[in-house]
């Protein structure tokens, strides 16, 4: 099951040139970018691992693309996303975030129903991927 998180996730995979254009858009707005990766695709997993520090003072998209490619090289079967942070007063939040790499196989999620008092149901989304230990998921 294809994970749809962040901007553009319903579109076909972005090519490197498209990523470059998006990064350029962010840089033109003065948003610093960062690269993050994870192998836990749960939608509520907000804190992905940082690939290096956020990149401040960049002028050109090539630097971000270089880091994305480095990250892909190190974690070819992880989810990798690019975040752009808008630090302007009043916004101070992630302005743009999109996935640039995903595992070849995405096993998807299972819905767990947990019955509590008075026949009430609580639901849990359980990614099949996390059944294996961290770092061992999505083996090619």
């Amino acid at each position: 099951m294809r994970i749809t998180q962040g901007t553009f996730s319903y579109l076909p995979e972005l090519t490197d040139d498209e990523i470059r254009l998006q990064v350029r858009y962010a840089l033109n707005h003065g948003w610093p970018l960062s690269v993050e990766f994870t192998d836990d695709p749960h939608p509520r997993n907000h804190y992905w691992d940082m690939w290096g520090l956020p990149m401040f003072d960049l002028k050109d998209a090539a630097g971000v693309l270089y880091e994305v490619n480095e990250c892909r090289h190190a974690y070819p079967n992880h989810y990798i996303r690019v975040n752009a942070y808008d630090a302007s007063l009043g916004r101070q939040t992630t302005a743009l975030s999109f996935i640039v790499n995903r595992p070849a196989e995405e096993p998807g999620f299972r819905l767990d129903r947990h019955e509590t008092t008075d026949r009430r149901l609580r639901y849990t989304t359980h990614p099949y991927a996390i059944e294996r230990p961290k770092g061992d998921r999505y083996r090619a």
């Binding site: 003072d57 960049l58 002028k59 050109d60 998209a61 090539a62 630097g63 971000v64 270089y66 880091e67």
Partner: peptide
Amino acid sequence: VLKRAMGG
């Protein structure tokens, strides 16, 4: 530094 210089 190299990343900052890219494109320039």
